[in-house]
């Protein structure tokens, strides 16, 4: 692997790690582990923990994939590894 390809891969791993940490927080942490304390906070008639487990996490997942696609496409150009 040449220098740029190596840096590109490192940047990719960094991005993926950050996004996966958020992925874990919004689903496993908020939706399951911390569900009871979060349920004391209500949005409308829904406890926050319950909301993350049944609705909120899904919205966060969407944002994560959007950010990933956008950032990776930018990285492709930056490191000149994009297609054609």
């Amino acid at each position: 692997m040449n220098k740029t390809a190596e840096q590109y891969w490192k940047a990719n791993i960094r991005l993926v790690s950050v996004l996966l940490v958020i992925w874990f927080i919004c689903s496993f942490l908020f939706g399951i582990i911390l569900v009871d304390p979060l349920n004391t906070i209500k949005i409308g008639g829904v406890g926050l923990g319950f909301w993350f487990a049944q609705n909120g996490s899904i919205y966060v997942f969407l944002v994560l994939i959007y950010v990933y696609a956008k950032r990776m496409n930018a990285l492709d150009v930056e490191f000149d590894v994009h297609e054609d």
């Binding site: 996966l20 997942f61 994560l64 696609a69």
Partner: peptide, 16 residues
């Protein structure tokens, strides 16, 4: 909720 999170969160893994 396991189904709701489980069957959507997998797409993050798939994409990334």
């Amino acid at each position: 909720s396991v189904f709701l999170m489980g069957w959507t969160g997998g797409y993050v893994l798939l994409a990334l």
